[in-house]
Amino acid sequence: MISITHFLVVSAIIFSIGLYAIIAKRNAIMILVGIELIINAAILNFVAFGRYDKLNYGGQVFALFAIVLAAAAVAVGLAIILAVYRKYKTINPDNITDLQD
C-alpha cells in the first residue's frame, strides 16, 4: 500500500534536489531546472493531497494550473537568463554580484 507519506517523501527529495540545484549550481540554467524541480515537488504534493478532495478535485486542478504556470515561468526565466547573458557574458550567478552593498 502506497500511503501519502511515500508521496511526501518523494516530494521532499525532489524539493531538496531542487534546492541543492538552486544554491549550489554555477549555471543559471541548472538553477532554473532546480526551480522547476521544486515546483514539480509542490505539484506532486498537490496531486497527493488531491486525494482528500474528491468532491472538487481541487488538488489536481491546482496541479494543472501550476504546470502551466511553471512552463510560463521557465519561459520568463530563460528570457531573463538570456538577458543576463547578454549583459554579463556569463550565466554563472557567482559572477553577478550587483546586489552587493
Binding site: L19, I31, D94, T97, D101
Partner: peptide
C-alpha cells in the same frame, strides 16, 4: 554581517533557507 550581503543570489537564498 556585511559578508552575508555579497550580492550572490544563491547565498541569499541559502541564508533564507
Amino acid at each position: 554581517l556585511r559578508w552575508v550581503q555579497n550580492g550572490r543570489l544563491q547565498n541569499y537564498l541559502g541564508f533564507a533557507f
